[in-house]
Structures are given as C-alpha cells and as structure tokens.
Amino acid sequence: MAQDIQPRIRIPSQIRMGEVIEVKTLVTHEMESGQRRDSNGALVPRRIINRLTCSYNGRPVFEAALEPAVSANPYIAFFLRATESGTLDFAWTDDDGTVYRAKQSIKVG
C-alpha cells in the first residue's frame, strides 16, 4: 500500500515578500473509515491519515487532526504568510504509524 501513497503540494509560482498564499495539499490514501463492510459482511478496519503537519524553515505553521469523516485522498488547503524563501516540510501520519513526507521549496521575490 505504502508505495501508492502520493503526496502533492501546490503553491503559487510567483510569491511576493509578505504575501499570504494558499497552500494546497493532497495525499492519495483510501481513508478507510472503519464503518465499511466487505463482501463477506465483515467490518473493514479503520485506516486513515490522522494527522497532517507543515513546517516552514523548521517552524511549525499548520497542524490538522483528521477523523474518518475526511474524504479519501484527503485534500486540505490553508494559508501562509510568505516571509522568506526556503522549504515547506509536510508530514502525513497514517494510523499504522507510517509517516509520509514531502518537501516544497518556496521562493519569495
């Protein structure tokens, strides 16, 4: 399953100093709710991304605690004040403990 996990990040291509930008994130994940039954009628165990964090040059800037009510392939967008060039680090935590990471460089002109 793990090799199917595909994080995607989108930020504007041109960013001015101090601009408030929208950061769009998506990770491919089925977000198995734990409510669904398989063809034999057995409950499929819950397995979701339960946490998303973002840090900006090492400083935490966003944190989300997700419940099974977040759709499959969770898309989460938030805003950020662009104060310096550098790196955005994203981490998605799976119920099984796996952490999927992605980096996005940010260039402030």
Partner: peptide, 15 residues
C-alpha cells in the same frame, strides 16, 4: 486544525 499569526488568513478548505 491549529493556526497562528504566521498563517495570515484563518481559512481552511477540505473535502
């Protein structure tokens, strides 16, 4: 979600 002044705008979108 946890936010702070560094976010600049208190808005979150999801599905």
């Amino acid at each position: 979600v946890r936010l702070g002044p560094h976010n600049g705008k208190a808005e979150v979108s999801l599905r």
